[in-house]
Structures are given as C-alpha cells and as structure tokens.
Design a protein around this nucleic acid. Structure first.
Lengths: 133, 133
DNA sequence: CTTGCCCCTCACGTCAACGTCAGGTTCTAG
DNA sequence: CTAGAACCTGACGTTGACGTGAGGGGCAAG
C-alpha cells in the first residue's frame, strides 16, 4: 500500500511515517517513480512503534530495540538494553501511580462533605479568604 | 531562604525555579534588592510540582490544579479537572503497562533456551532467518 | 494531452522545559 | 572599603516528534 493508506489505517500522519523512515524505524520499498510502498506487516509495526513512543522511549531507543523485538537479535547487550528499558518504564509507572494517588487524595478531600464547601448554591462571592501564607 | 538554597534542597536547577515563577507556579517574596525569598513550604511545593511534571502534566495544567491541591478550591469545574487529569494518568499507566508487558514477552523469548541462540560463542554469522511474514 | 489526486523532497516553524551566556547588581565577610 | 559569591534580568540555544507550506513529479481516467 502507499503512504496515505497506511496513515489512515494506523491513525498516524503521513509526516510521521516519513519521519519514522528518517529515523530508520520503518523503511518501505520504493516504486520506480520513487513512491513509498508498504506491506501489510507495516500496520502492526507502526502500532508497535506508537506503543513504544507512548511509553516515553526515544526514536533512538526504539531503533535499538526493534531488532530485538522482530528479528530476535539476542546478545548480552540487547538483553541488557531490554531490561534497562523495562526498568525505566517501571519507574515511570511508579511515578505515575504516586501522582495518581496524590490526585486521589485531593479528590477525596474535595468530595467529602467535611471539606467545607461541596455546596451547589455558591451564590455568595467568596467567603473572604485572608489567611494565605 | 534564597533561590540557591532551595535549588540544592530540592534538587532542581535555579533556572527551573525561575521558570516556575514565570509560569506562576511558585511566586516567592522579594527582598528590597529584588532577590527571591522562599519560605519552608516552598520545598514541598517544588516536590509536588516535580511530581506532577513527572506525571506528564504541563505547566498550564499544574497551574490549574495547584489551587485545588493546597487552597482547596472546590468547584464542580475543579473537581472535573481533577478527575480528568486522573483519568489521563490512568490511561498513561495502562499504556506503559502494555509496553512493559510487550518488552517482558520479548525478554522471555530472548532468555528462553528455545529462542535459538542464547549461546555466547556467536562466531556463526546469523542462522539464515528467512521466515518473516 | 489535460485534469486531478496523491505523492515526492527540502526546509523552516512549533512547543515545552529548561540550559547557557552576557552584562550588571546585591549581599556577606573581613 | 574591597573582594567575591550569589543573585538579577534579558535573550538566544536545545531537543524531539512532528506540523506546515513551497514547488514539482507519478499515474490512472477521459
């Protein structure tokens, strides 16, 4: 398929797909006229790339990891890389969980009636807040 | 305390603290000479800001959330904002978890002896991989 | 051949969260 | 008073993952 179809089928922009090629993440074949042609496997590949981007990995890191994922490159270095990235993701999850719990605490306070003003009839301007330091 | 001390105590750069002020996240008092002076509470405030940055929130979003967190601003809008950001973080956690599981699968393959080449004496070039669709 | 859609390659623009350098000021120790 | 560390305000630089034209080419239909 050509680049436009891959874009619509994966939900990423044409520009992004060209960028992936620039980063050597997804190299398509070329027609005699120079147009990019992708095979069916490219769809899943793009989804994988998006997943890793969403996990906060950089193009460079994804480039390093892709051979491990699909071609099963298997060296001590590649395994170290995989576990290192796994650890990074774990740390991110931990941080996100902490932030979520913090928000949960705030939400709990704001929804408990003991909080002070879960009232709806907030016709009164603002109850003269002065203590602020 | 002055900005340098706050920086060392929180582990963020002086530039970052000035940036926080630019974003109205942390407005310090000023001495007659124009130097910033922070109170003790600023330390925890910076840690909170860092936590929210680490959770992927933007300065703007943090600016919106901070009044909810410390001054207990409590309107229907603020509660909606809190739960919306909580949901965003949850989605991020889900995505990260998926990516981690994906990496785990790859790691499992690369460490299982059935994978093909967990060997160390990789003098052989590459065992002629041809099945790839 | 022409229309028209999709495609191509530059190449500059963007946005966020700072880094960094320049040139000048405040504060503290002696 | 002097030295010097720490501070100040601009203001431009950086990085990553694209967005956004500009100007031109491929290709199937009529």
């Amino acid at each position: 398929m050509r680049i436009g179809e891959l874009a619509t089928r994966t939900g990423v922009s044409v520009r992004a797909l060209r960028y992936y090629e620039e980063q050597a993440l997804l190299i398509p074949a070329r027609s005699s006229g120079g147009q990019r042609h992708y095979d069916e496997g490219a769809v899943e590949r793009v989804h994988l790339i998006q997943m890793l981007y969403a996990a906060g990995l950089s193009s460079r890191t994804i480039l390093d990891l892709l051979p491990c994922v699909d071609a099963k490159v298997n060296t001590p270095e590649s395994r170290a890389m995989l576990t290192a990235e796994r650890a990074r993701i774990e740390r991110q999850i931990t941080q996100l969980t902490q932030a979520r719990d913090r928000l949960d605490a705030v939400i709990a306070l704001s929804e408990s009636p003991a909080s002070g003003c879960t009232r709806s009839d907030t016709t009164a301007p603002v109850p003269t807040v002065s203590a602020r330091g």
